[in-house]
Design a protein around this nucleic acid. Structure first.
Lengths: 244, 244
DNA sequence: CAGTGGTCTAGACCACTTA
DNA sequence: AAGTGGTCTAGACCACTGA
């Protein structure tokens, strides 16, 4: 598959193929929603059997890096409001139904990264970040307040865009406008007491228990691209976690 | 693979094989930690190719129903304290390290299922449950109080066993002593205010914010086998959720 | 209709484990 | 050395899609 590798690679062929195809997606050779060459073509190009390409693509599909559609082809996975909500928004109502929140912008401005942001986003000291404060409503009632911080270097004009109104789901915007694909995220959940400001936005008493969700979202190369701190009312909603 | 199926099955062969093997594990034909027949033997027995059996077993391995060990064979997955903690205990410290909690039994008694238990465990009205109240310590300090409720029908003498001290991880006990394998669980997280009793056990003020985790654990047939309500101090710990 | 991914097969060889 | 799962190949046929 590679006539003159600089460093001989003794890993199984299908893993080499998988990582090569993955690299091409990350590099932008094929962009989100684009179709990859067929299994047969890739096999011929790389000099391996179709079964080996298939095994590589199957693993990438399991990892949601590509989507396979019988009769049509294999496509680079793209975020959409639906997939974003499904994967990254875990609040459900009493009946266990996933609720779609509305967003209300509170504030959006640039600033120098604080210690927590520098640490979470692995920035150089003094780097600039954009901060977005939002309130999110479920069924018209305030449910969540959140602070989102992203490196300004990755999203140079996100704050200008704000004038036109930010979309409810940001990850498809990150992907389509800035070429930043969120591949995975880590969330840490804690219970905290509402600050005076939280209480004001959510319509509760200061000191009321809130579910705090701290999220670090990473791109396909595992670099941090977003730090997010959400505080949620959990009288009508709960965070759903499936252990399988 | 089946010469006279009562109802013709048009699903792919490997899915039929997968479900048949799965059925045998659930039925106890092969018990936890036992080795299955080799791929070749299964293929011959079922009249399919080895590749088809392989695809079925690979899916079961991805689902953690079996464990494959090169050179040795394919084994029915079994719980151990380690796998249980890794899969079902998500509290981590500030550094992101998973912490192993100690357990201190507070109470253990039988009772008639209340409405919440009847609902969660899908019991008949008036059915008996066993309730276990525990306090869990991290590094010697109280961190969690929890109530566990299980149908008495499934674990007839669990409360008698308590005299010898319950193990720290219950799921391997459920499996080895009662033949009940927990295959998956659903958790709902909320923020609540500590009751006077919570506060007493955890050494905080009443009203302090606690992370409440409500878990329903299910067996391999998806029937509920345990209902658990944990309340956690999150000053030193956080609930870790990986979104991939 | 041609082209795609999905299934199934048969066989070769490799890597690892146990005896 | 024998037996296991892991990799890789080649080829057949099926199911689905879109021109």
């Amino acid at each position: 598959m590679d006539p003159m590798p600089q460093v001989p690679d003794y890993r199984p062929l299908y893993q080499q193929v998988r990582d090569l195809l993955r690299r091409r997606i990350v590099d932008g050779t094929w962009r989100p929603d684009e179709v990859l060459p067929s299994e047969g073509r890739l096999a011929a190009e790389l000099g391996v059997s179709q079964g080996t390409v298939r095994k590589a693509l199957d693993e990438m599909a399991a990892q949601k890096l590509v989507v396979r559609r019988q009769g049509r082809g294999t496509f680079v996975a793209a975020h959409s409001p639906d997939t974003t909500l499904f994967h990254f928004f875990h609040m459900v109502d009493r009946a266990g139904e996933r609720q779609v929140p509305e967003s209300e912008l509170l504030d959006c401005r640039r600033g120098i990264a604080g210690p927590a942001e520098t640490e979470a986003l692995q920035l150089m000291p003094g780097a600039m970040v954009l901060r977005i404060d939002r309130r999110r409503m479920i069924g018209g009632a305030p449910a969540i307040v959140e602070r989102i911080a992203v490196p300004q270097a990755l999203f140079p004009d996100l704050d200008v865009l704000e004038e036109d109104g930010l979309p409810n789901t940001l990850y498809d915007l990150y992907q389509k406008r800035y070429g930043v694909t969120v591949g995975r995220a880590t969330e840490r959940l804690r219970a905290v007491a509402a600050t005076a400001e939280d209480a004001d936005h959510l319509g509760v008493e200061p000191g009321a228990p809130l579910l705090e969700i701290e999220r670090i979202a990473r791109d396909l190369d595992d670099g941090p691209v977003e730090w997010r701190l959400s505080r949620c009312l959990t009288d009508r909603l709960a965070y759903l976690s499936e252990l399988t």
